[in-house]
């Protein structure tokens, strides 16, 4: 189980920065920029949430099969496929959350900060980000939990190779197949605990205010 836990944590270590930068960045773009096709692109990016993981995995396999560079890089059934497999269904959650987070920041505050002589970067880090922080963190907690628990897409494109691509959910699947319910239960409990902590964090973040507690 340690190996599976280690691989899962390693996947998360790659996923979280990508979720923050790509998910947060796209959320900001959708919240703040108006461009043709914005809603269509936004909907397409949400598709992975509603598509069955097997369908998602199948499309990725077909795509990789057609791109020589990815095929030769040994992308499939390797760790990068673990990262991609867990990201695909979790990234839309982060995009949606960050879009809501940035859209919730009053533009008046940002504009007034600009007229006070502060640069757009300063305004982003001192005003926008602190005010969007709670919803962003809630989104990150939910999307990370989703990434950690991904099963279907990861199985389709990364396989279930112990010590290489086997994450905790795949480990549980393997142990149940071998009728080792004790081990499966231990791993399952770990994921349940992560889920409960995530939900607790989300609830706390949603209920809090922007003011710091003195």
């Amino acid at each position: 189980m340690e190996q599976a836990l280690f691989i899962s944590l390693k996947v998360l270590a790659f996923d979280i920065p990508i979720l923050v930068l790509v998910g947060g960045g796209l959320g900001w773009v959708f919240a703040r920029k108006v461009f043709p096709g914005r809603e269509v692109i936004s909907l397409l990016l949400l598709l992975p949430i509603v598509l069955p993981p097997s369908v998602l995995g199948l499309y990725v396999l077909m795509l990789v099969g057609r791109v020589d560079l990815l095929k030769e890089a040994g992308f499939i059934f390797a760790f990068p496929a673990n990262v991609l497999g867990s990201l695909l269904p979790s990234l839309p959650i982060m995009i949606q959350s960050s879009r809501a987070a940035f859209a919730g920041v009053d533009r008046n505050l940002e504009e007034t900060a600009l007229t006070l002589g502060r640069s757009p970067w300063n305004v982003f880090f001192r005003i926008t980000l602190p005010l969007a922080r709670r919803t962003l963190l809630a989104g990150l907690a939910l999307s990370s939990a989703r990434a950690l628990g991904d099963f279907g897409t990861t199985l389709m494109i990364a396989g279930n190779i112990p010590g290489r691509t086997q994450t905790l959910p795949l480990y549980i699947y393997g142990q149940v197949g071998s009728l080792n319910f004790g081990r499966a239960n231990a791993a399952a409990l770990l994921l349940v605990a992560v889920g409960i902590v995530s939900l607790f964090l989300v609830r706390r973040l949603e209920a809090g205010s922007h003011e710091r507690v003195a």
């Binding site: 009053d106 008046n108 505050l109 504009e111 007034t112 600009l114 922007h210």
Partner: peptide
Amino acid sequence: IHPCKRRMGILPQGLALFPH
């Protein structure tokens, strides 16, 4: 000139005090 370099302060209707 960009708004941040105009040196023209504005007090909007809602005052825009930073709540955090």
